[in-house]
C-alpha cells in the first residue's frame, strides 16, 4: 500500500564533542504502509531512548533542521509533556503523530507538512509537527485542530505554534494556539 509521500526517519544522538549535524543520522526511508511498520517494529520506542536523543520523520528531501529551505519560513505545533508522561503517554502520542503524517490526515493541507520530531529530554519530552510556511494561517490552523483531535487532547489543553525564525532567535512566542 503505497504512501502519498516517501518519508525519511532520522535519529539524533547528543554528543557535545561533535557538531550538531554530525550527530544527526538518516536511518531509513519508507514509502509503503508495510515498510512503515517494518521500520517501526525494528526501532526502540521513543520512551526507551536516552535523554538528548530525537527521532524525526520528514518527507524525503527535507532535512529535519530549521536551515532547510523547506523549513526556513515554517514553524511547529508543539506538544510538551510533563516528566511523568514519558511512560504513560509519549509512545502513543508519537505513534499517533506518525500515523497523521503517513496517512496524510490533514487533507489538502498535508502538503504544508514537512515532518515531525520527538525530543527526549530530562526536563520533559516534546513532540512537534513541522509545517513549511508559518504565515499560511489557514493551513497552520487546520493542521493544528486536526492534530489536536487525533492526539485525543482535551479541549481544555492548549497547544501552540511557533515560527522557527522566532525559536532560532529565542524570541519564543505562540503565533497561533488551538
Amino acid at each position: 500500500h503505497q504512501l502519498q509521500n516517501r518519508w525519511a526517519l532520522w535519529f539524533f544522538k547528543n554528543d557535545s564533542s561533535r557538531a550538531w549535524q554530525d550527530n544527526l543520522h538518516l536511518v531509513t526511508k519508507v514509502d509503503t504502509v508495510e515498510d512503515f511498520w517494518a521500520m517501526y517494529s525494528h526501532i526502540q520506542l521513543a520512551s526507551k531512548l536516552s535523554s538528548g536523543c530525537d527521532y524525526a520523520l520528514f518527507k524525503d528531501g527535507i532535512r529535519p533542521m530549521w536551515e532547510d529551505s523547506r523549513n526556513k519560513w515554517g514553524g511547529r505545533w508543539l506538544v510538551s509533556l510533563a516528566k511523568h508522561q514519558r511512560h504513560s503517554k509519549l509512545d502513543r502520542l508519537w505513534l499517533e503523530t506518525l500515523l497523521c503524517l503517513i496517512g496524510e490526515s490533514f487533507e489538502d493541507h498535508s502538503r504544508e507538512v514537512c515532518g515531525a520530531v520527538v525530543n527526549i529530554r530530562t526536563k520533559g519530552d516534546k513532540i512537534s509537527v513541522w509545517t513549511q510556511e508559518a504565515e499560511n494561517q489557514a493551513s497552520v490552523l487546520h493542521i493544528g485542530r486536526v492534530y489536536k483531535e487525533h492526539l485525543g487532547l482535551s479541549t481544555k489543553a492548549i497547544i501552540g505554534y511557533q515560527a522557527h525564525a522566532d525559536t532560532a532567535t529565542k524570541s519564543i512566542r505562540n503565533k497561533f494556539v488551538v
Partner: peptide, 20 residues
C-alpha cells in the same frame, strides 16, 4: 488520487507478517 489512510486502516497492518 491522493493516498489518504485513517489510523484504523494503518493500525490493521501493524502486526501483519510481511509478504515474501
Amino acid at each position: 488520487g491522493k493516498k489518504q489512510y485513517d489510523r484504523e486502516f494503518l493500525l490493521d497492518f501493524q502486526f501483519m507478517p510481511a509478504c515474501i
